[in-house]
Write a protein that binds this DNA or RNA. Structure first.
Lengths: 120, 120, 120, 120
DNA sequence: GTGGTCTAGACCACG
DNA sequence: GTGGTCTAGACCACG
């Protein structure tokens, strides 16, 4: 489920964060579901545990998961995800859309894409 | 017009690239228009010329501007912008939209935003 | 016939050289034919005469044209073109072909291209 | 393996790029193989690390290698090489061939060279 | 240890 | 004057 790409210039912990967010967004990981332990995931991905630890901490800061001492990390409910993350995404959405429209795509085409994305 | 944010984790040359792209996309910089010279902009922003040089080079690789040795850098036409940039933006658009929809925004709300963005 | 491209990173005198070589190679300029004077061509292309002068001198060094004092520059016969230019081209040919073959093109495909090039 | 020629008019980073491309094309460097670190190669060639860095970056942009921060640079697979590089080479191939044919070489001679190049 | 970024300063080709 | 190249040296993130 989590694929690391050595050709990807981004640091590994960011790739891990991105993969986990996508699994949550797609429903592959359900709210309240327990995530693999830091050590387990580090072993599976053949990665330094510190790297997974950092990804988990950052996702917890965003509200995507919440750690329970001695029990592990659990996927959060949508409502828990920080407003700051939403702002970041809305800014990115506007800027990306503006540039795509500048490059010749019509708002209707992009609208179409939106509905395709929302009904997978 | 170009604002650098020291709290922004991204490197300076990327912030410069982003600002310049936005100025082109918004029409504040017109196709064919001459940009400030590497040294002029470096002085204005109180940044090392090499850093501006790098931003200009990367924007040239994307097709956003074309340098003419001895003359200066000029904003390109939309048609000159590399297809790879478009793909990057479409991927970002889909992922950002998917996460926003997961966070509770409806496709219709995002559609509204699209049209707001396209008619400034 | 000679088109300068401001988007081309190469210096103008090289672009001029390249255009003139191509005109000779294609037969658009015949052996012995008189070329426009430095001043005439500079005016036509809206370029500094020094730039044309440099292109003419370099082409003369390669054997592509020979200047006649007080008369102008004339296109040379094939036999006059320097052996050094031929060596340069053969090296470039081998290297370019090797890389194309590495990238997956077959020698036969390239052979086909050769014959297409030779019968325009 | 990498030879720099001070008489060569091309900048050092391009000479380095050319040498590395040739090593990859010839198979002396295999896909996935690790290249010397930026600093190691800089020391070997008695060149500033920034110059090597630039060569590596440009080769990465072409798809010839991919850097992994903290790990090193690795030779890519053929499939990763950008299509733009292929177009550049095809243009160069056609022009070089056209000029060689103009200079008296027959397409058959060049065809022979192709097969010699492909079976080293 | 490795690549990524940045500064400071220099010289050159082009036109 | 302008962009292009190069050197020297520094600090940082990542793992």
């Amino acid at each position: 489920m989590i694929r690391l790409d050595s050709r990807d210039a981004r640091p590994i912990y960011e790739q891990v964060m991105d993969s986990l967010r996508r699994l949550v967004v797609s429903g592959a990981i359900q709210p309240g579901e327990k995530l693999p332990s830091v050590r387990a995931m580090a072993t599976t991905l053949a990665i330094n545990p510190n790297t997974i630890q950092r990804a988990y901490e950052s996702l917890a800061a965003e509200g995507y998961l919440h750690p329970v001492a001695g029990k592990g990390c659990f996927a959060a409910d949508r409502g828990d995800i920080q407003g700051r993350r939403r702002e970041t995404l809305l800014n990115r959405f506007d800027q990306t859309a503006a540039e795509l429209i500048f490059l010749g795509l019509s708002p209707d085409e992009l609208s179409h894409r939106l509905h395709a994305v929302s009904q997978p």
